Computed example of a mutant assay.
Amino acid sequence: MLGKIIQLVKRSDLIIEVLDAREPSLTRSKKIEQIVIKNDKKLLLVLNKGDLVPLWVLKSWKYYFKEEENRESVYVSSTSHLGTKKLRDTMKALLRGNKGVVAFIGYPKTGKSSIINALKGRHSAQTSAYPLEYGYTKSIQLFKIDNKIYAWDTPGIIPPDGNELEKIIRGYNVDLLEDPVKPAIELINRIIKASRESLKQAYGVDFTDPYDLLVKIALKRGWVYKSDKEPNIDMAAKTIIRDYHEGKITYYTLPPNLYRDDKSSSV
């Protein structure tokens, strides 16, 4: 998987790293960014799912990336088709009006394919297939964004890495988790720090702690074991993780140069 991403980077002029606007820091891959820099390619950060966080938070991240890292960024919502024009304009600006090929990369569940589909629109056209280098027999297509910009229609998927919490935020397959409860509790704790209310609204229950939330979700939905009628918290844990990726839980994190107070913690 990593080899395919490296090939996409080498064969592109602009790399767009798609991040989750709720967790920009944890959905960045510094390893991939180093590969981009090493190959002397331009990098654009795109905060997707921008409809899930307040506008001032998106602007705060954009300001942080520019002022602290001198890095260009754009915030969009691919599902709502918001920010697509700004993304196109920024791509043109970074390519300085020249012809170029764009590659979209990022962790699973960040919405890379949705952005690609939004950019395709009705007026884009597929071009001929381009095989990847030796070792990859499958060809991928370029599609035309405008008269000068083309993009690969297959995103580069970064394998989820890091600790348990980071892996699930980065899109690790929930069905492959041996014990989904532990990382789900870590995710719940992280969300509580940002917005406890978002969890109450999402599941329609009040709760005392993460485990209690899992129990109440299971009982509310009738997920109990037939043998002893105990709540199936594994199913509740998987549901929390899936709902997070599907955008059903709205919260946000702030860039390192800002500090949260009690009033700004609710969404």
Rank of each mutant, 00 (worst) to 15 (best):
S195Q: 15
V36D: 00
R22Q: 06
Q126V: 08
K216A: 11
D40S: 09
K182S: 09
Y63N: 13
I35M: 11
K112P: 01
Q201T: 13
R88L: 06
L132D: 08
Y172E: 15
S78Y: 00
L2D: 10
D261Q: 11
S227F: 13
L55Y: 10
S12L: 04
K59N: 14
N173I: 08
D209S: 11
P131E: 06
S195C: 15
L45M: 12
K144Q: 02
K62N: 07
K86A: 14
G135H: 03
S198N: 05
D234A: 08
D161N: 11
A93I: 10
L52Y: 02
V57W: 01
Q34D: 15
S60K: 10
E186P: 04
K92Q: 15
F104Y: 15
Q126W: 06
D175P: 11
I217G: 01
N70E: 13
E33V: 02
T27G: 04
K4F: 06
S265V: 09
E33W: 03
E178F: 12
E178R: 14
D209G: 10
V46F: 02
T137W: 02
V36L: 02
N70M: 13
V205R: 05
A202E: 13
S139W: 03
T127F: 04
S114Y: 10
V36P: 00
K248A: 09
K229V: 13
K42R: 15
T110V: 15
K148C: 07
I217C: 03
I6N: 05
V76R: 00
Q201P: 08
A93W: 15
G100N: 04
P183C: 12
F143E: 01
G3L: 08
I157H: 02
Y63A: 10
S60N: 13
